[in-house]
Write a protein that binds this DNA or RNA. Structure first.
Lengths: 196, 196, 196, 196
DNA sequence: CATGAATGAGCGTTCATTCAT
DNA sequence: TATGAATGAACGCTCATTCAT
């Protein structure tokens, strides 16, 4: 069992700062997420409070990413594992990520903007981890449910397809995500399933 | 018809600055593309020359985007129009963009990094224009070559699928783009074609 | 007579903080000796404990200086007083300080770095107290053991000569301090003694 | 022949900034020599001008050290070389440095404060270069003018003796440097000369 | 006696841009 | 057409210190 080394107050302050950062990044982009603006958004007296609770900007960003990814994992992981077939798992993954993006717009948007900015700054492309998706697809191929394709290419394409949803939601807040997910599910089912 | 008032010297200088910017963004990311670094890369004595030839950073970025998109359009447009069927045009589009990304890595990488940074800074998502793809897909549906799907979702998914190639090339410079294109072509042909 | 109101626990804590500060200054310089680093070195949970036991940074530094100077005084004072001639006392002083610097490297180094930083920050030169040395030299002149020279200049020069040892020890940890002291003793004996 | 790569204006501005820095360090210590204060002292509109003309604080400090050391070298070097004996050269060196410290108080004081602060910050002792002094002393020993002593110890002691003058001048602006130099000359002549 | 939390001022540095030739 | 010089705002971060418990 894990024992938290952080006090209650500290945890609350960190959450407050994290929430403000997520909201800010989602609304105005990562480029505008300076300590000054975060402090303002969170209602802090000075930026010093951020430096106090996080080792630096990198630490804050890392915490943000961890926080959001944990949330997604909890939402999507269960749904995927509840399925017994590879085609079912792929369907559950797509539906899970899209509905999460719909229900938690700010965190999802923030996560992707942070990932993009990391790519832009360092020059090193930091694409999303697709190993879990590849495993599902390779399982499907082994079980004969899915045809023979390059699992890496397919996984990347699926991931890119679901990751675009937050950006479309920003432009079209009333986007029907249920329908969007259904379209993607049909698309990738046809693209992956074994010939009859 | 509009005649540009730009002299030969000016045009050459603009091209020199643009090329340096493209190379810099492709190599080190948009975040590192400051006027100082661009001037250094282009061998200019001071950043003043950039401000002189471009109205500002926005203007420089806009010029970069226009320049690269024009190049892509020339490469891809012809190939697409040479095809007579919608399925053929979709295939030509995918193959065209992927081979362009392979043959012109720096401009393509720069373009996408700029697009990403614009999204990150302004908060306004600026997704790629997919209207041309949508038109191809809707044609295919009208002609009965393609099944009934949401053309917007499909177009976005195709576009996202091809746009990832520059990032994968950065991580894997020896990536087999011909095979990658073939995988995507098969993927989206299955996803879009009408049932037999 | 003044009785200190400090408890045993408080005294121990002060010593712990002082020792950590001395070690830190000796190893990394006064500039790196921030409250945060001292707390880390001493194994304290927060910097608050330092502020609690010392009125402020000035007080901490003053305590450090007093502590080290007392130690030197105990080491050197006895040796000097054991001598009966001025020449003997000068010899004992030089040997005492140099051997102390050799045996107690951290405190001696810390003391001098603190003195230097005080000079650098305030602009007020705070040279070491040389009145004890001057008294020895003037005694020697009165007794005819030493020639006629400016006792202030000579005292300052002796003091500067012995104070450099900690810095040379930092660069050359294997420096032969016994030989170094012998060289200085011969040097200043020749410089001060009365002509035969 | 050396061609200066710096423009007249730039050289003048650098000198202006350097002079202000020297004065500031001499008067208030290196710790107070922030960009803000230097800009104020030099009458600059913003600290940005300092960053513009110097690559950073390190560069500014390096330029200061080079500038002052060059000045000392010009003053002392000629006097030393004009002497033909080792004893004469040692005398000229001591007299040269002390009179320079008297005539150019601010630069000399600034130089030493900078050296001290470098020691304090990095923990690495950066003692003055004494190789030139050692060479004079070893020459004297070879020629039989000087007795057998450790040239390194003697050189360090001489250097420390002359370097203290700026600090004493700060406490005692009316100090008689001519007399001070004469005392040191007699002191080190006795300490070094061969027995009759 | 001890401590986590909070604070505002200040640091060097970077930025795109404008001024004056 | 070109250029060196200059600019002020903003950046993340560190500092010794104080508050409340």
């Amino acid at each position: 069992m894990q024992v938290t080394a952080r006090s209650v107050t500290s945890t609350a302050r960190r959450a407050q700062i994290l929430d403000a950062t997520i909201a800010l990044v989602a609304e105005e982009g990562f480029g505008k997420a300076t300590f000054a603006r975060i402090a303002e958004k969170a209602g802090l007296s000075s930026t010093r409070l951020i430096s106090y609770h996080f080792a630096g900007k990198d630490d804050l960003v890392t915490a943000l990413v961890d926080h959001v990814i944990t949330g997604i994992g909890e939402h999507v992981g269960g749904r995927v594992m509840a399925e017994t077939t590879a085609r079912g798992r792929l369907r559950a993954y797509i539906e899970g990520v899209v509905t999460y993006a719909d229900a938690h717009r700010a965190p999802m948007s923030a996560l992707l903007q942070v990932a993009m900015s990391a790519t832009a700054d360092g020059g090193t492309s930091a694409p999303s981890d697709t190993s879990h998706l590849e495993r599902i697809l390779e399982d499907g191929q082994r079980q004969g449910e899915m045809r023979d394709f390059d699992a890496g290419v397919m996984a990347t394409t699926v991931q890119r397809a679901v990751e675009v949803v937050p950006f479309r939601l920003q432009a079209e807040p009333d986007l029907d995500c249920t329908a969007y997910a259904a379209e993607l599910i049909e698309l990738f089912d046809r693209a992956t399933r074994a010939d009859a």
